[in-house]
Design a protein around this nucleic acid. Structure first.
Length: 153
DNA sequence: GCCAACGTTGGC
DNA sequence: GCCAACGTTGGC
């Protein structure tokens, strides 16, 4: 089982939206970055754990946990000309973009802020720390455990 | 709202 | 295939 971190803008779709969504789950559409896509396509499996991270907001932070409930499938929004996620270069017989389905697991008892993560020497490799703009990134098991511990402080 | 960082595009 | 220009992301 692998660990991941998904960024989302809470104004658009927050962890609370996920929690109150149908079956507490959602198709994670709109990933338009090749590195992120390749993680979903090549490595992500049902049962993988996911940190939900709120970005572009007052306090950027890891706020909760979700899990992958469905492996990658074609993201239909790439064919929808009225969608922000429309990609005119993608075709149904050769789709470029995919998404997985995730389900809410739990809220962290306290959020772990970007500030705290940046200040913590135990977290070195996390892309979040390297000014990465990656919307989906791998998390090592140690980092996962460490961030869970931080949320309990 | 600014701007640095970085990914993508397209001309050559 | 290089690289400059451009667009986007995301913290502040």
């Amino acid at each position: 089982m692998a660990y991941w971190l998904f960024k989302t803008e809470p104004d658009a779709y927050s962890i609370d939206d996920l929690k109150s969504d149908v079956q507490q789950s959602t198709f994670w559409e709109g990933i338009r970055n090749y590195q992120a896509r390749n993680f979903m396509r090549d490595q992500m499996q049902v049962g993988d754990k996911v940190f939900i991270y709120h970005s572009s907001c007052k306090v950027p932070a890891v706020v909760g946990i979700a899990q992958v409930t469905k492996a990658a499938e074609t993201d239909p929004y790439q064919f929808d000309a009225s969608s922000d996620y429309y990609d005119p270069k993608s075709t149904p017989d050769k789709p470029r973009w995919i998404g997985v389905t995730v389900q809410f697991v739990e809220l962290l008892s306290s959020q772990v802020t970007l500030k705290a993560i940046k200040a913590d020497d135990a977290i070195v490799d996390l892309s979040l720390k390297k000014a990465g703009r990656l919307s989906i990134m791998p998390v090592t098991e140690q980092e996962w455990r460490h961030i869970i511990e931080m949320s309990k402080r």
